[in-house]
Simulated scan of single mutants.
Amino acid sequence: MKSINSINSINSINSTNGADNTADAQRVVVIGGTSGVGFAVAQAAAAQGSNVVVASSNQDRVDLAVKKIGDQAEGIVLDVADEAAIVAFFDRVGEFDHLVYTAGEPLLLKPLADLGAEESRAFFERRFWGALLAAKYATPKLRPGGSITLTSGAFATRPVPGALLGASITAAVEGVTRALALELAPLRVNAVRLGAIRTELWDSTVPDPEAFLQAQGSVLPVQRVGTADEAASAYLYLLDNGYATGTVLTLDGGAALS
């Protein structure tokens, strides 16, 4: 597998020689890649020389993400709650090198007594079942040396009252990561366990996003929440490191220590 970090030098050589470097670039698919951490991953991968495919359920967001990333990006609308659509998506994508899954609805923070069955199932549909089905149908399309990177969260190990669904889903994703790393070997499967990251996700999750993020950051050893770019670097590390599999990489500003 070519190192993603090495592609800059490859592309520089090809550009100098006037050669077409398209065949040398890796291809990274980011489901959830039109906003927040997913977009940061897609943008960073493209900046390092990869061709990227970004997918989400909203055509306008897909178009805007592709425009921002530039010529190395392709965008496809995808409803990850629709299994047939996931199958068709990967048939359209064809062969590629790495899958990153960051898709999910805004966090649902409610105590058990207030949770409805329908809304709970819908939350699992995209964050858990969507990720599992994406892994299933991506696997035959991944080239040798490829990888799948899923997304977990700090609630998996440090839940708070009202975060029952978030804790359940993130813990399940981490279990799937370890199981698939064995089942799909030598294909690599990893996950990133994110703490509080400053993205637009919080705009529709809490009443006062800025106050919430300030409060979250103030109790961390680093004294702030993370950025989407910092989160993206964790995903790119797992894509690039051919020795990493079954790994849940924690990026939480030291929250696990407090």
Score class of each variant (00 low, 15 high):
V77L: 11
V77W: 09
L78T: 02
D79R: 05
D82F: 13
A85Y: 12
V87P: 05
F90R: 14
D91M: 10
D91W: 13
D91H: 14
V93R: 06
V93N: 06
D97Q: 09
L99I: 08
L99E: 05
V100H: 05
V100T: 12
Y101E: 03
T102W: 09
T102E: 06
A103F: 12
L107S: 11
L107D: 04
L109E: 06
K110F: 00
P111Y: 15
P111L: 07
A113N: 10
L115A: 15
G116W: 00
A117P: 03
E118M: 13
A122Y: 07
A122S: 05
F123T: 09
F123M: 13
F123K: 11
F123W: 09
R127G: 03
R127P: 00
F128E: 01
W129Q: 07
A131P: 06
A131M: 04
L133G: 04
A134G: 08
A135L: 10
A135M: 06
A135T: 15
K136C: 08
K136R: 12
T139A: 12
K141V: 11
L142E: 06
R143I: 11
P144G: 13
G145S: 12
G146D: 08
S147V: 10
S147T: 14
I148M: 07
T149G: 07
T149Y: 04
L150H: 12
T151C: 10
T151I: 01
T151A: 01
S152M: 00
G153I: 02
G153P: 03
A154P: 02
A156E: 01
T157H: 11
T157G: 04
P161R: 03
P161S: 07
P161Y: 01
A163D: 02
L164R: 06
L165A: 03
G166A: 01
G166L: 01
A167K: 00
A167G: 03
A167C: 00
A171K: 01
V173Y: 08
E174K: 07
E174M: 05
T177N: 08
T177R: 04
T177K: 04
A179V: 13
A181E: 01
E183G: 14
E183W: 13
P186K: 03
